[in-house]
Amino acid sequence: MALTLSIPDEFYNELYIGIQKVYVKATEKAREDTILLKTYLSINEITSYYLDVTRPTIMAWVKKGLPTYEIEGKRYIKRSELDEFIERHKK
């Protein structure tokens, strides 16, 4: 035996929007969590998910000695070396 339930359109729309927001937040959180598991990060990953810094800041750190790895024209930074670089520059 099936139960049929009628939901007003306004409630359905609000529910749909709410579920959509939860999905977007969960997806963003999953991306952030994945970044923490990666050994090598692109500069975009660093600036978007790992640190609250800009690309020019990362490039300035590279000029100050932060090592990078280039593969097929894309630059990566080892997460542990980035963390060590930041730690060495604490005041």
Rank of each mutant, 00 (worst) to 15 (best):
P67A: 00
N13T: 10
Q20N: 14
T54Q: 07
T39Y: 12
T54N: 05
I17W: 11
E28D: 10
K91N: 11
Y40A: 01
K91L: 08
R75H: 01
G65T: 03
Y12N: 10
D33S: 09
K63R: 07
E14T: 08
G18R: 11
V24P: 03
E14P: 06
M59H: 09
I77E: 01
L66Q: 01
V22E: 08
E32H: 09
P67T: 00
I58E: 00
I58G: 00
Y49K: 05
Y50C: 02
A60I: 14
V22W: 08
K29D: 12
T68C: 09
A26N: 11
A26R: 11
I17S: 13
T27M: 14
M1D: 07
K63Q: 07
I43H: 02
E70T: 15
R88W: 06
E45S: 01
N44W: 04
L36E: 11
I86V: 06
D52C: 04
I17V: 14
I71L: 11
D33T: 05
I46S: 01
R88E: 14
S48L: 05
I43V: 05
I35E: 01
L41W: 02
H89V: 00
F85Y: 06
Y69T: 06
E32W: 07
D33Q: 11
Y12Q: 13
E45W: 00
G73Y: 02
K64L: 15
A26H: 10
D83A: 04
G18P: 04
E84H: 10
E87H: 12
E10A: 12
T57R: 06
N13M: 15
S6G: 09
Y76K: 01
T34V: 06
Q20T: 14
L37D: 07
A26D: 10
E14S: 12
K21Y: 12
R75W: 01
P56T: 02
R75Q: 01
L66P: 01
L41P: 06
L15R: 06
A2S: 14
L5K: 06
D52T: 09
I17L: 11
R79L: 00
E81T: 03
T47K: 05
K25M: 12
W61Y: 07
K91F: 12
I19N: 06
V62G: 00
R55S: 07
Y16V: 15
E72M: 13
G18V: 06
I7D: 05
S80N: 07
I17Y: 09
T39E: 13
F11Y: 13
E84V: 04
N13S: 15
F85C: 00
R75M: 03
R79T: 00
N13A: 15
Y49S: 03
L41V: 02
K25V: 05
P8T: 14
H89C: 03
T68F: 07
R31N: 11
K63N: 10
T39A: 13
K78L: 06
L51V: 01
R31Y: 13
S80F: 02
A30Q: 08
A30D: 13
M1V: 15
